[in-house]
Every structure is written in structure tokens, then in C-alpha cells.
Amino acid sequence: MYRAGIAGATGYTGIELVQLIHRHPQMEVGWITSQSSPGKRLSDVHAVPWDYPLITLEEALERADEVDVVFLCLPHAASIEPVRAVKATGVRVIDLSADFRLKDARAYERWYGVPHTAPDLLTEFVYGLCEINRAQIRNAQLIANPGCYPTSVNLALYPLAKAGWLSPLVIVDSKSGVSGAGRQTKLLYSFTEANENMTPYNIGHRHRHIAEMELILNGARANGQPYRFLFSPHLLPVNRGILSTIYVTVPEGVTEADIRQLYHETYAGEPFIHLLPPGQIATLRHTVHSNRCAISITPADPDRPDGTEYIIVATLDNLVKGASGQAIQNFNIAVGLDETLGLL
């Protein structure tokens, strides 16, 4: 039985991890932390039946050798020093923040607005996009869990990029449930502001998750110039879920049948990729409360069956496949377990 430590267990991704670990036949909770509620029990903070004591991060780091893996569900820029401390003990780390997703400290500072204080560790982390980097994840000790938006976009577009069929300009329109912002009290995320409303934010080439799209898709491209992303995220008045609508142009002569065959070959045997048949479009209900990513492929103009414009839609649950579920999937792969354990 593997024991897990969870730093930041009272946030949305943290409590999701606790719930997933309780479903996992070979994992159990070792300790959990909360900076806002130390000394309380988990059942005092969330409506759950588990009375785990909430300890401080400092105490947890002193007890790092009591667990087999530490999941860091901390704000951006808060994971760096805990990673150093846990790494020194030899315990596996899966970081759900953005602190180790990028390989370049300058890129991190550009997108996150603060200097990276452990650039020496960046290259030691594996980017944990399971379906793309499975070989690198096996036996990895340091894993950077991908962001929720990039997981949807990268899984949706990776086959086209790898084949050299993805147009240089990629237009992405994404919507996220309010839980994607974390458990915070900012006015924008209050019920009155979010309900019966939809709010775009950081539109264009501004959102920090573009860096992860560039990391995976520019790395996968078969030829040609780097991709340019126009990314428009929106706050959707639902609790959870991400829906990304992506507009692409493929080369002349590439048919819908060719694209579908490419996706089926790329994701053959993938337990969490749901490729929808012609005529179906991915929705939040295809994926919420699951570790699946649903992908639909639709020609833009039904009157031009030989056209080059397509609309790819990808959906997932931002708290599961976009965060805690993928973290469990990463752990399963890293230690050699069936990667679906605790997730089906």
C-alpha cells in the first residue's frame, strides 16, 4: 500500500485528491496539510466523512519520509522550496502548480511574473501529460502535472502537430468552470458575479497557459514554423469542466477520414481518450466527474466535404483530468501500476 502526503488538501484539487485516493485500491492518505486551517480536521472544513488532522506544511516536510509520494497542491511560486525539501529525502514529488512545468526560467518569469528560484531543478522534472510523455513518466521521481486548459488543447491538437497538419495560427476558445480559479474569495468568482454570466479574460496571447501549449505542440511539430496561439479563456457559470473549441486549417488533400484515422492511430488503446464519432460534438457531460478527455472533429462547412477548415472540440473535468485525476494517473504510471487504478 502506497502512502500519500497532500500539501494544500483543503483546496479544490486537494480535496479531489483525497477522494480519488480513497477510491484507489493501492493508496492511502499519510498526512495532509492546510495553511488556512491547521489544527482542525478535514471534516471541519469540507463536508466529508474523513477526520484527517490538518497539519502545517512545515510539519509535513519534517515527516516527508513517512510517505511514498507528495502531491503539492499549492499556489504558483509556493512549491519551489517544498520540492527541494522533499527531493532531498528521495520521496517522489508530483507538483500540481505551474512551478516546474516549463524548462526555461526566463519563460517562467515572463509568464508568471516572478523569478524562478530553483532553475537547476527545471530540467529534472518530467512534464506529466500522460498520453504524450508516458515513457518519460515511468520511474520518474519529479513530475510536473499539466495545467487544465493545456491538457485539453494539447490532447486535442497533438496528432495534427505530430503529422505536420496543424496550421501555423491556432485559434482556441476555451471555457472553464469556476473551480478552475481555486478556492478563493475574489469578487469575479462570487455567485452573484458568475451566475447567469460568462466572462472572457486574458484573451489573445496573454494567458500563462499558452506557454504549455507551445511546449508540447511546438515540440511535436513535424516541420515548419512554430505555432502561434490566440487563446480566449472564459469563466463559465458551472462548478467544474473545461470545453475548448479550436479552429484549424489542414493542408489541401487531407480529408476528414484521414484526420479521424490519424487520431485513432495516435490514441489507440488510451483508456481516457474518448474520440467521438462523426456527427457528435464533445460536451461537458461527456467528461465531468471523470478522468476522460472527449474529442470531436467537425468539418467547418458541411457543403464543402473536401474543405481544409475543421473545428476540434475537447472537454475534460478541470479538477480530474485537468488536475488531481491526471496526478493519480501520473503516479500509477511512475510506479508501474495499472494507470486506471482509482480512476475508473
Rank of each mutant, 00 (worst) to 15 (best):
L262M: 05
H274T: 15
V288I: 15
H264G: 07
A257I: 06
F272S: 13
T266R: 02
Y247D: 08
R285V: 12
Q261Y: 03
Y247V: 07
T283I: 03
E256Y: 09
Q280A: 12
T287M: 02
H264L: 09
A257N: 09
V248S: 13
L276S: 11
G253R: 09
D258L: 00
P271Y: 04
Y247N: 08
A294C: 13
E252F: 05
T249F: 07
T287S: 05
H274I: 12
P251V: 11
V254L: 01
L276Y: 13
H289P: 07
L275D: 01
G269I: 06
V250P: 02
T266Q: 05
E270F: 05
H286C: 13
E265F: 04
A268K: 14
I259E: 00
T255F: 01
P271T: 06
E252L: 07
V250Q: 01
H286L: 08
A257K: 13
Q261F: 02
L284P: 02
A294I: 11
V248L: 13
P278A: 08
L275Q: 00
Q280E: 14
T287N: 04
G269Y: 07
T287H: 03
Y247L: 09
P251G: 09
T249R: 15
T283Y: 01
E256F: 08
V288Q: 10
A268R: 15
F272V: 13
T266N: 04
L276K: 11
A257C: 09
P277T: 09
P277I: 06
E265Y: 04
L276H: 10
H289M: 14
I273Q: 03
P251A: 10
I281L: 05
T249S: 15
I281F: 02
P278I: 06
S290H: 09
P271A: 03
E252Y: 06
C293F: 08
I273C: 04
G253I: 10
A294R: 11
T283C: 03
V288T: 14
T287G: 02
V254D: 00
V248C: 14
A257L: 11
L276D: 13
R292V: 10
Q261V: 03
I259K: 00
D258A: 02
T249C: 11
T283R: 05
G279S: 08
